[in-house]
Structure formats: C-alpha cells, structure tokens
Design a binder for these strands. Structure first.
Lengths: 340, 340
DNA sequence: CAGATCAACAAAAACGTTTTTGGGAATGGG
DNA sequence: CCCATTCCCAAAAACGTTTTTGTTGATCTG
C-alpha cells in the first residue's frame, strides 16, 4: 500500500524507455512515436504514477499553483462563492489554489503575498470581498495578477467587478414593469463604487422612462438593518409615499420590511421592495421572500481564474480586460403592482 | 528591481561561505559558530533573499503546505471563519493553505485530494461545514489528517467539533437563570450530531433544575424559517404556553420571531428566545437582537492547524485528540424575565 | 551513393535547495 | 609531542522532474 510513491524512473524502467521519454510522453512534448507515447502512458497509468509537482515546478517554472489573496474571507457571508468559483475553474485547468488572507492589514497582506511568491505561484488573484477601488501592493509587481471584485486605474491589469449600474437598472426595470412610477431609493452612504453605480442606475432607469428624479425619494444610510429601517420609515411617512422601494442591499431591505410593518403596510400589496445582494439566508427567510439582484460571486471567481490562465498562456488574446459582470434578478414575492 | 530572485548561492558568494553554510545558518541546522550564523543571516537579509519553497520541499520532504479540503465552503455563511482561523494559524507556523472543495461529490473530492498529494502537502485538514460524522476517504490513508467539524469512530485521528450538548446547556442556563421554567425547544429533524447533542443538552439542563421533561414543549422541524415559524406557532398556541424558546438555530429562531409577532407577543417581554449559530447578519438584524450561542468556527480552524503541526513535529504529545470545543453565549436583547 | 535531413529516442545537465560525507585546524589527554 | 576529539565549515550527492544536447539509424536528395 505505502509502496513509496512511484516516480518517473520506475515508469521508465517498467516501460523499457528512458526517463526523458516518459516525461515527454506524459507532457506531450518532444518527438515520439504515437506508439511509445501511448505505451508509456498506459504503463504510467498501470503503476498509477502521479507526478511530484514540487519537482516539476522547480525545473519547469510552472508550479500550477494560483495564489488567492483576499481582504476578509469571513465577514461577508456567501462571498465564499468567489473562492468556490475560482477553485472549480482552477481545478479544470489542473491548477490548485493557495489562499492567503490579509484581514485588511497591509503588513499581513505583504507577508501573505511573500509566502505565495516563495511557493512560486504562477499567478495571483487579488480579491476583495466587496467591490472597491484598490491600489496594487508593490509585492505584486513582478507576477501576473488579476483583480477580483476590485478595480484599479491601471489598464495593464485584468479585473472583474459586478456591473453595479446594470444591477440597479435591472432592479428598477422590474419595478417599472410592474407599473410603479414613484420609486424610492434606500441608498448607501459609503464612498465605494457600488454607491455611485447603483444610484446612477436608479437615475438612468427613471430617466429612460421619462420620470423626473425626485430627491426627496432618495436616502443614504449605513448598510445595516437599523439605519435602513429609519430611512424607509422617513420615505413611508411622506404624504405621497413611494409605492416601491429599491434598496442598496438586503440588510437595508430588511430594515424596509420592518418599517413597512411599523407603518402597517403589507408587502407586496401596499409596497413593493427589490434589493441587491440576494443574500439567501435573509432573502428566503423574510416574509414574503425578498426579490433581489444576485452579485455574481461565483462567476467572477471563475472568470478571474480563466483570465489569468489566458494571460499565463499568453498565446493569443492575452490583452488585459476590465469587465463588469451582469447581475441576475432573483424573483421572490416582494414585488407586485402598485396599490389602487 | 526584477533582478532575478537571489538564491542561496548568491548569498553564499556575498558572505564568503559555502551554500551549505548558508543553508545551515538559515535553518538553524548543522554546527556553525554563532558569529558566522549571524553574519550569513544579515547578508541574506541584506540581499533580501527568500527561499524557493519548491526546491526546499523537494529535498527536505517538507513543503510547508497544508491541504484544506471541505465539503462546501460557500453555502454556509460565515463558515469562512473556519478557513480564516486555519489560515492565520498556518501563517504563524510559516505554513500556507492549499484549499480544495468537494461540493459533496466524492469524485471531485478524490481528485482534489490527489492534487494536494501531488503538491506534497505536509498534512490535511478534512473539514465539514457543519458538524457531522464522516468516513475518511481512502486517499487520505497515507497522510497526517485532522478532522474539523467532523467526527469519525477512528481514535487514531484528531478531530474537533463544537460541544453541542454544552452549547445547549449554556443556552438553557441563560434562560433558567432569567427565571424561566417553562421552556420550549424548537428542534431539528435531521439525523446529525447537533440534533442529538442539543436535545440532550436541553434535557440535561432541565433535569439539573428538577424540571420535568415535557414532550409537548418540544418540536422537530427542518432548520428553516418557515418550518420554525410553524413549530413555534404550535407551542405558542398551547394553553399553558412556554415563556421562553430555545431554538436549534438562528433560522428557526427567526421563524419564532415571526410566530411571536403573529401571536402578538413581544420579545422579550412576553417571550424570551435564545438560539444557536450567532449568525450575525440575522441575529443583529432581528428586532430585538437575537441572543445566540456562537459556534467556534475560527477557533476550530486554529485548533486543527495547531494539532496537525504537533502531529507533524511528533516530538512530544502527538497522541491524537478528539475534542469538543465550547461555544460562547453572545448576549443581545431577546431574553428577559418570564412575564407576570 | 555521399551527404543532408529527419524521426525517435537517450544521456546529461539543470532547477535551488537540504542532507550526507569529508576534512582541516584547534583542542585535549597521556 | 603524538594521537584522538571536537569544532567549523566545504564538497558532493541527492530530491524528481524538465530541458538541452547527443546519438543512431532510416529516409531523402541530387
């Protein structure tokens, strides 16, 4: 059982060829007759040979390891999907992920990156757990890197972020199509791309329908349930209250639910709500279920790995790309036609 | 800048010693005078030498990589804390984590483990995202492994799981101390350790106080908000309704909140609630805040890595340990004295 | 048919460390 | 003063691959 992992030389001996030939057979390199190539392969299979990646990486300069550095994997629920998408895409490329977490501490981050470099990762995914603008740490200057849920002003780096404006437009389109004209926006107050993008989407969607932007229907608060509740209560207390609310995220939406309850408004009969995050534990648990736009965590993870792979192969279209990923609407029960 | 990463031989040349001496100086091995050891170290520092882990692992058989295989990193919110704890502990040991995800597919899992082995990980953390009994995959037979949030019947493996019974006792103690005597239990229906452990803790806590176990106060439902709401409604409709509810988890607790609302009971004035999970997005967002027992994800992650390190060093107390980790109570506002 | 080309493989070097083995100078014992 | 230790350190081998360079016999070319 523990018969000392077979190496390339055992395979060579068993197949009656040189180690060179074995290496070439398995990697597809060199010039060998198809006959020997196949024979060697099947012998290797039979001995159930598995390469030592340390050794092969040492010589070939390809470790098949992708570094994954993120700021905080823990505090954003479901952001694990980013990691999942990346990991599955990597596995498909015969690569494996080495993860490092900075906890928002640049010292820790630098140490983590240094560790990745010592292990000779082929490239690095530099990820944030929510969309933000970043400056690339100096330690990453020598190694292929793609940004995930993060953007920078550098055009020589690939990056992927959610299409914030598009997400807002999708949400708004859903409300508009249901017939709503007076739609409030419970916005966020932080200075992050999502704040600007979602508000822009809100305004654009209104403009497209020829609906005037009404500042009194727009709030900005912290992205938490309490502040969301307060903001929603203010809008619902208006004389001509909105018939629908578009919320910056699900936590604020939960606050909106509470505010609706306090105001004795029934969702979606008296008030429709749509939000962004599709944070399932919340969205599914709310009564009625919260219709929400999903952030494409999994897809961004996949994309980042695939982009990195393309750049590492640098055969063809390896020109860096900065893309915005579309965000799908997840229907539940919080949207209906406007009252009356 | 990109001056071709300096290796041990450049350091040797610069310090006027052999590569052997450099290696020994940095690793603390061999017998060298403290003088040269220090001198070499400072030269290495000056050149800002960093080892090539591929090369050192190849020869030394120590890659300093720990494999982390989990069933589903994405679907359980906040379980990323497990990864965080493990990663931070690993970093402290100069190790790095290589993660692989099985998505509950044993084929995928085997392939992932195989990849880890090819990369010559020193050991593996075999993690589940919620406490369950597992059978170790055959692929892990040759390599040091510790189980995380998972238990098996093998005594030669270290493992760490939450102390389910203790968690329940802590929750119950909190309610009992507040004066409650008639405490309902909204249990879970799945056949998992948490189901048995938490119910046992509930019963034990009652027994300790000489309170008879009343079957009519105990329910079992799916761990979701809807079923939790239904179960809670049944208990709250009892003639002699409970003054407090202990919930299997936060989702069920959220259902209990909804049921309380439907029954026009105010929390905590009319009904106290305590639960398990401390799923912050929910617990903080509920009104009033939900007092809940936290599962020690971060701590289990740390412990697993530290245990693995101890077993790898096998100098001293490397005897496998199976431990249950205590679960702390996180106070919020959902518990008060019983009414009247 | 001589020389050039090519196909198919093997030998050897290389990757950057760690480990093993070797060896000279200082120290100690008799 | 000579031999045996001990203390430092260096030379060389080793880790398991990949890459570079060689080698042989066959095929082609003019």
């Amino acid at each position: 059982m523990m018969s000392k992992r077979v190496g390339i030389r055992e395979v060579a001996a068993a197949a009656g060829v040189s180690v060179t030939t074995v290496s070439h057979s398995l990697s597809g390199g060199g010039q060998l007759s198809d006959a020997t190539r196949e024979r060697v392969k099947s012998v290797a299979e039979g001995l159930n040979y598995a390469p030592n990646r340390l050794a092969s990486g040492l010589r070939s300069k390809r470790s098949q390891i992708i570094g994954f550095v993120s700021d905080e994997i823990s505090t954003t629920p479901y952001a694990g999907n980013v990691l999942l998408g990346a990991q599955e895409a990597a596995a498909a490329n015969d690569q494996v992920l080495m993860v490092v977490n900075s906890n928002r501490n640049s010292k820790v981050e630098d140490r983590g990156i240094e560790a990745l470099l010592q292990h000779r990762v082929d490239g690095i995914i530099y990820a944030r757990m929510y969309h933000q603008a970043v400056e690339l740490p100096a330690a990453l200057s020598g190694i292929p890197t793609v940004l995930l849920d993060a953007s920078s002003d550098r055009t020589d780096l690939s990056s992927v972020v959610p299409d914030e404006e598009g997400a807002a437009r999708t949400a708004m389109a859903h409300l508009l199509q249901a017939g709503h004209r007076r739609i409030g926006y419970l916005g966020n107050i932080d200075d992050i791309p999502a704040t600007r993008g979602r508000l822009a989407g809100y305004r654009a969607a209104l403009a497209e329908q020829g609906i005037a932007y009404d500042e009194s229907l727009v709030t900005a608060s912290e992205s938490m349930t309490g502040p969301g509740r307060d903001a929603a209560s203010r809008l619902l207390a208006l004389a001509d209250r909105p018939t629908a609310l578009f919320c910056f995220n699900d936590r604020i939406a939960m606050g909106a639910y509470q505010a609706a309850h306090l105001a004795s408004l029934e969702i979606p009969r008296d008030l429709s709500i749509v939000s962004i995050d599709n944070f399932e534990v919340l969205a599914d648990a709310l009564l009625p279920g919260l219709t929400s736009i999903a952030l494409p965590h999994y897809e961004m993870g996949r994309w980042a790995i695939e982009r990195l792979a393309a750049e590492l192969a640098d055969d063809a279209d390896s020109a860096p790309q900065q893309i915005q990923m579309p965000c799908p609407l997840v229907l539940r029960q919080s949207v209906g036609p406007p009252p009356r």
